[in-house]
């Protein structure tokens, strides 16, 4: 499965990056391709390309604030969660996505 996503938190200093790493780690362990963009106080990093978004099976938005350029994900399967969900139980998150994608497929 191809997963893309965006992580963003209130201060944009710590949780954004921790949530990103947790999602990346859990996705890779489950054998998925993954890329997570971060929108933090430094600005946007690892920005998703149009191509990556187009090819993605699912979009994870792990954010405590509203993210920029959300309209990129129109017509995509989007799962929105607060950063702490990604930080606390990344494995369960990926599993839930797998299940949902399988039932809608």
């Amino acid at each position: 499965m191809k997963i893309v996503g965006v992580a963003a938190c209130t201060a944009g200093i710590a949780h954004t990056y921790l949530a990103k790493e947790k999602i990346v780690e859990a996705s890779k362990k489950a054998g998925h391709q993954v890329k997570i963009e971060t929108q933090g106080t430094i600005g946007t990093e690892d920005e998703l390309t149009e191509e990556e978004i187009k090819e993605a099976d699912v979009v994870i938005i792990a954010a405590d604030i509203s993210i920029s350029n959300r309209d990129r994900f129109e017509n995509k399967v989007v799962l929105q969660i607060p950063t702490h969900v990604a930080m606390k139980s990344p494995k369960a998150l990926i599993k839930k996505i797998e299940e949902e994608i399988n039932t809608t497929a």
């Binding site: 200093i13 710590a14 949780h15 954004t16 990056y17 921790l18 990103k20 790493e21 947790k22 780690e25 971060t38 933090g40 430094i42 930080m87």
Partner: peptide, 11 residues
């Protein structure tokens, strides 16, 4: 650097 340290605490 702060972002990188925060991220590394995922491990």
């Amino acid at each position: 650097m702060l972002a990188s340290i925060a991220g590394s605490l995922a491990d």
